[in-house]
Design a protein around this nucleic acid. Structure first.
Length: 646
RNA sequence: GCCGGUGUAGCUCAGUUGGCCAGAGCAGCUGAUUUGUAAUCAGCUGGUCGGGGGUUCGAAUCCCUCCACCGGCUCCA
């Protein structure tokens, strides 16, 4: 007999060799019907794998992320089985579960799969699922594993096996499909009741662009048809928030083939929105002791040779601009930091001057691969809300923390509650990708890690994500359909000060090297606005909205009064306009609602007589009558409250 | 850059076994209407069917090529 400890700390006795499924059945049949896998001593196991010693067991269902993962991983196998049956001879790469569903990478040989083939695969998957196929776990030796896939001719699996240790290799067999797999899997395929293959794409084998590109099919499955329908509805709703769609509808920005791919055109409403964000940050930065600087859009090639950007990105940049006679080379500015270093170098500095904080909304141009361009989130010309802080080594942490404070203030003002903090360090395996001394890297990485701890930030750490000159702390936000985008960034840099020979005179009257902190709270105005649009679905906070109120006269008779109201609002710094079309009031309201204008002010006979406006709030409805003064202070109070400037 | 898909009016879309002057709704313009909380009515304008080349008596429709966009991969100072 063995003792099984359940999550509520109750202990039950079972025969050795009991499975999680049997444990579930001994508790209740209903539970057993929902068990997908089980966590045994912290490791996720098949529900029908024998447990031979005392263990802590947690039964996993669809309500657990690990339960979902089991379902989706098994779904990848099911899809592979279906594809193998429909297209014999295909070879398989890897097929993992992911955050929302699963994928499998497939070498389809001479045939090309397209979206139109997905339906047939889905159908076969459902047929196979109904067969209630079990997943059989088999321990195999390395040579057995090799001979199986040699016979099958699947070089991808052979490559995977090559990296595995003998004695640690398992196969899973379900129906006609056998896969190299660590598991775990579902008790049987009948748990999969609904299947949707979402998209099909190319993916390099092992993520290496020099290797063969396989066909990747993404899918998702559910234990109930209804849940799939709900998920698809959710995806559709998310698409409505897409900044590319809303940006067009709300006339914020546009692209033109003639101007060039990845070069956004800010339309008046978008430009006004962006200006407000810039003004806001300028105000915050002024309070925090930043000094404005302005630098040109191009720089001599030697500037970037000094900074190291030329060696690193020279080949992946727009080609240099040359002077007509001398042949002098200039690059479009890809970064503001080299320019700011030269501003620092413009005169000698004392330790008493530090920290010095140079801020610039600097527009930079970077060549991005054509397949990478994406709305406003990935463009070839964009404006960073950049600043560089030059400080002494012992000022780093204080300055770093002050920057975090600014970023938090902004995120709070814009209601970005769900962001991810990431510490990006070097990949210790590829030192050639980085410049600067080991000692300085260690110092810089240590500073960031300590700041995160001291500030109590829950940060994830990613190795290999650092900039080539230094480690960084990034703040990421998800877009409407769950893609992560980096917004704010703070980077500690010991390298550029060396390369530009930046110095300050210390209290000891000796020259010392300052440290640079690169930081951009928004990241880029383009990307930030994109994410903001998706975050609020185009319903901007009042202080950013291009139009805060629209005055809707009931008829032409009240046009004069409407103009008086507009004048008063403008005098109170409220952005408003009049809808003077000869339309019915309900039509004007509808159009204002569709255009997401925060407040509608209806004026007719009654309002004109009493010097009032009838206020309707976007998405909420009638708020009743207000005097113009009361409405103005309602707006201005809300604006101040949202910006955190009360 | 790579794999797959898409490209018809300002917007959303119909039209493809190749065949009358390429259609609709919304937007726009003109006129009528003067309206009380989510679409008033009528008329009109608007497209080198992404660009170029080819096949054909004839191309939005078939082929080639370039461009842009969409979904991924790789990349992201």
């Amino acid at each position: 007999m063995i003792s099984i400890t359940l999550p509520d700390n109750s202990v039950r006795q079972y025969e050795s060799g009991v499975t999680a499924m049997e444990i579930a059945k001994s508790i209740s049949e209903g539970l057993a019907r929902n068990v997908l896998s089980a966590k045994v001593n912290g490791e996720v196991w098949d529900a029908n794998r024998e447990i031979n010693q005392d263990a802590k067991v947690q039964l996993l269902t669809w309500n657990d992320q690990e339960g979902k993962a089991t379902m989706w991983h098994s779904s990848a196998h099911l899809m592979a089985e279906a594809i193998e049956q429909l297209y014999p001879g295909v070879k398989f790469g890897i097929g993992p579960d992911i955050e929302n569903g699963f994928y499998y990478d497939i070498d389809t040989g001479d045939i090309t799969l397209t979206e139109s083939d997905l339906e047939a695969i889905e159908k076969r998957m459902l047929d196979l699922a109904r067969e209630k196929q079990t997943f059989e776990r088999v321990n195999v030796s390395k040579s057995e594993a090799n001979s199986y896939f040699t016979e099958k001719g699947d070089e991808y699996k052979l490559e995977l096996i090559h990296d595995l240790e003998d004695g640690q290799i398992t196969f899973y067999k379900s129906g006609t499909f056998t896969d190299l797999c660590r598991g775990p899997h579902l008790p049987d395929t009948s748990f999969i009741k609904a299947v949707k293959l979402l998209n099909i794409a190319g993916a390099y084998w092992r993520g290496d662009e020099k290797r063969k590109q396989l066909t990747r099919i993404y899918g998702i499955t559910f234990p109930k048809k209804k849940e799939l329908d709900e998920y698809l509805l959710l995806l559709e709703e998310a698409k409505k928030r897409d900044h590319r769609k809303l940006g067009k509808e709300l006339e914020l920005f546009a692209f033109s083939q003639k101007v060039g791919a990845g070069l956004p055109l800010w339309l008046p409403k978008g430009a006004m929105l962006r200006e407000r964000l810039e003004q806001y940050l300028k105000k915050v930065q002024k309070e925090a002791g930043y000094l404005p600087v302005i630098t040109p859009h191009i720089g001599n090639v030697n500037l970037y040779k000094t900074s190291g950007h030329y060696d690193k990105y020279g080949q992946d940049s727009f080609r240099p601009i040359t002077t007509p006679y001398e042949g002098e080379e200039f690059f479009l500015k890809p970064m503001n930091c080299p320019h700011h270093c030269e501003i620092y170098n413009n005169k000698p500095h004392s330790y008493k001057d530090l920290p010095i904080r140079y801020a610039e909304f600097g527009t930079v141009y970077r060549y991005e691969q054509s397949g990478e361009l994406h709305g406003l989130t990935r463009v070839r010309g964009f404006t960073q809300d950049d600043a560089h802080i030059f400080c002494t080594p012992d000022q780093i942490k204080t300055e770093f923390k002050a920057v975090i404070k600014i970023i938090m203030k902004i995120f709070k003002a814009l209601d970005f509650a769900e962001f991810i903090t990431q510490i990006s360090l070097r990949d210790p395996n590829t030192p050639e990708k980085y410049i600067g001394s080991e000692e300085n890297w260690q110092k810089a990485e240590k500073a960031i890690i300590e700041v995160a701890e001291e500030e109590g930030l829950e940060a994830i750490t990613e190795y290999g994500e650092a900039a080539f000159y230094g480690p960084k702390m990034d703040f990421m936000v998800r877009d409407a359909i769950g893609r992560k985008w980096q917004l704010g960034t703070i980077q500690v840099d010991y390298n550029l000060p060396e390369r530009f020979d930046l110095t300050y005179i210390g209290a000891d009257n000796e020259k010392h090297r300052p440290v640079m902190i690169h930081r951009a709270p928004f990241g880029s105005m383009e990307r930030f606005v994109a994410v903001l649009v998706e975050h609020c679905a185009g319903n901007f906070p009042l202080w950013l909205s291009p139009e805060q109120a629209i005055i809707l006269p009931i008829s032409e008779k009240y046009q004069n009064y409407a103009e008086n109201v507009l004048k008063s609002l403008n005098n109170s710094d409220i952005r408003a306009l009049i809808d003077d079309r000869s339309e019915k009031i309900s039509r004007k309201i509808r159009d204002a609602e569709v255009n997401k204008i925060p407040y509608m002010l209806i004026v007719g006979e009654k309002e004109a007589a009493e010097n009032q406006v009838s206020v309707r709030k976007h998405g909420e409805g009638d708020l009743g009558s207000f005097s113009i003064e009361d409405f103005a202070s309602l707006i201005n109070n809300e604006v101040n409250r949202l910006q955190g400037f009360e």
